[in-house]
Structures are given as structure tokens and as C-alpha cells.
Design a protein around this nucleic acid. Structure first.
Length: 289
DNA sequence: AGTGGCTCCTGGCGGC
DNA sequence: TGCCGCCAGGAGCCAC
């Protein structure tokens, strides 16, 4: 599923090709992907020039000056210059036509994704529910400690809550918790200072690693040119139920947290705090993360 | 505040 | 081989 790293890859791949380009037309073939009146979306976007691109959490933003074209890929959305082989039999949901004949196609089998035309003046309100950007300077260990303070919700559910931290989805939540050696069901507010610092570092590392590997092609993610990412090759726990942990060899477990499949290593991610774990089992060292 | 359930949607899977 | 039923999952919404 497209999460922060995948959306960031899409943004980077599109950036130089679209900036400075005029939007000549927006063809909405499936009105259900427009969460606003398609004619209104079209009226707001057509004839404007793309000044820049941005990303907020999992939202991809085309800055048109007075208005933003905002795209969310949700589960299966893909933006492609040319339809991929598996998309050729179906219609795109919408097409953005740029000057010079370039066409950006939006495909989405499950139709969860969408397109919004947001006046720049309303952008703050539009994104007001989104939490901190985990790769920004604003996101510090102290910031994370503030966010988890007093919260009894499980760490996994906390990480998926876009109102707290924006951009983390199921894959990177599971992988970051593994790197931080934290059990996904631990109440967020129960983290000690060292554990919070570990989670902070793990989140940044995992997301950056995802970007460095051009995203995870777990479901169907490809970049606008159709290229797959590589992060799925180095997943430690996500969708590895029953397989041996790459660090300790224990069998990876799957539980459901907040209605989401959650994967973890029962030995590397014990319920107890790291200190209690060392006391109880001094032979069990945690290295290699 | 937190949880659980429902909704959107459809490819892909297991079971028979 | 074929068909039916179920499930994943991001996010918003609602009830409790």
C-alpha cells in the first residue's frame, strides 16, 4: 500500500516532469474518485500551471498557485505516465493532460483513492487533522514523547493514527516496531525515555530506508514509470507470518490490532520493557537491528 | 479516550 | 474445473 515512502517516490519521480507545465485538461472518467463535483474540480484545475509538488503524510500535492490538486492513492491507486500491462484492459479513473501532450493517468482498482481541488486559502483547514511529518525537523524525540504521553492505545494503533503522525501505514508501522524492538500491543504511554527514543529512531530509519529502496511493492505499488520498489525484499516482519525472524530465528506472529493485520517477532519484541527482559533473560541479547 | 463495527471496493484466495 | 463466500486494508464515521 502506498505510505509515506511510496508517495514521496511518486512525488520525486513526477516533480521535474510536471513543474512549469500547464494543465490543459482534467478528464474524469469515474466521478466517484472526485470527492467534489467533477465539473468544479475541472474548473479549478484546468488552465493552471504547476508551480511545484509537495507531500503531506500520504497526500500528494500539486501546487497550482491559488489552488492545490491533491491526490490520495489509498490502497491501490497508481499514477502512471503510460498504462501498465495490467491496467490496459481498464479505464483510468481520471487523466491529467499537460501541455506538450503528456498524460498522467490515475488507475485504482478498489476506487478508494481520489482527487481533490483545494483552494490554497483552504489548504490549512483541509490538512488540519494531519499530525506531524515524521521525517521533518519538527518531529523530535521530545515531540514523540509528548504524543504518546498518557495514551493507552496500543503502539500499532497509535502509529496508524494519521492525526498523531502522518504517513505511516501498516507496513512501516510493523517494520518500525520491529526495529525498535517494541511489542505492537504495548500501550503507547507506557514507553520509557529510552524506548521512545528507540521508536523515534526506528521510525525515521524505516521510512528513510523505504524511500532509499524506492518504496515497497507489496500490493501493486509502482512509480509513475511503472518501476517497482525494492523495500519488500528486506521486510523483517510484514507478511512474514510463520517465517523465521531474520535476527533471532523465532517464528513471526500475526495478530489483529485495531482491525489491522499486525506482524511481530515474539522474541525480539517482548511485551516487557528491555530492562525487565535483560533481568529475566540475560542470555537474550538484541543485536543486529 | 478508546474500541469495535461498518462502509467503501474488488482481486485473490480457500473450501467444497 | 468452477463457483461461492470471505477477506484485506486507509480512512472516515458512528455507537457505546
Amino acid at each position: 500500500m502506498p505510505e509515506l515512502p511510496e508517495v514521496e517516490i511518486v512525488r520525486r519521480r513526477l516533480h521535474s516532469a510536471v513543474v512549469g507545465q500547464l494543465i490543459e485538461d482534467v478528464i474524469v472518467l469515474d466521478p466517484s474518485v472526485c470527492r467534489q463535483e467533477p465539473a468544479e474540480v475541472r474548473r479549478r484545475l484546468v488552465g493552471r500551471r504547476i508551480a511545484g509538488t509537495a507531500r503531506r503524510g500520504k497526500w500528494l500535492i500539486f501546487d497550482l498557485g491559488t489552488v492545490l490538486a491533491v491526490v490520495h492513492l489509498r490502497m491501490t491507486g497508481r499514477l502512471l505516465w503510460r498504462p501498465a500491462a495490467e491496467d490496459q484492459s481498464r479505464q483510468p479513473r481520471f487523466v491529467i493532460e499537460l501541455e506538450g501532450g503528456q498524460r498522467l493517468h490515475f488507475f485504482d482498482v478498489r476506487r478508494f483513492g481520489g482527487l481533490w481541488a483545494v483552494p490554497t486559502a483552504e489548504a490549512t483547514a483541509f490538512f488540519s487533522e494531519l499530525g506531524v511529518e515524521p521525517l521533518s525537523e519538527e518531529f523530535t524525540v521530545a515531540c514523540l514523547r509528548d504524543l504518546v504521553a498518557g495514551r493507552r492505545t496500543p503502539l500499532k494503533a497509535f502509529l496508524l493514527d494519521q492525526r498523531r503522525i502522518a504517513g505511516i501505514g501498516n507496513i512501516y508501522a510493523d517494520e518500525a516496531l520491529f526495529r525498535a524492538r517494541l511489542h505492537p500491543l504495548r500501550p503507547a504511554g507506557s514507553l520509557g525515555p529510552r524506548e521512545a527514543a528507540r521508536l523515534w529512531g526506528a521510525l525515521r530509519e524505516t521510512l528513510q530506508l523505504g524511500i532509499d529502496h524506492e518504496g515497497s511493492s507489496v500490493e501493486s505499488f509502482v512509480d509513475p514509470a511503472g518501476a517497482r520498489g525494492g523495500f519488500q525484499e528486506i521486510l523483517n516482519v510484514y507478511q512474514r507470518t510463520g517465517q523465521p525472524c531474520r535476527v533471532c530465528g523465532a517464528s513471526i506472529r500475526r495478530v489483529v490490532v485495531g482491525g489491522r493485520g499486525t506482524h511481530y517477532c515474539p522474541r525480539c519484541q517482548p511485551w516487557r520493557s528491555a530492562r525487565a527482559e535483560r533481568r529475566k533473560a540475560p542470555h537474550c541479547t538484541q543485536r543486529g537491528h
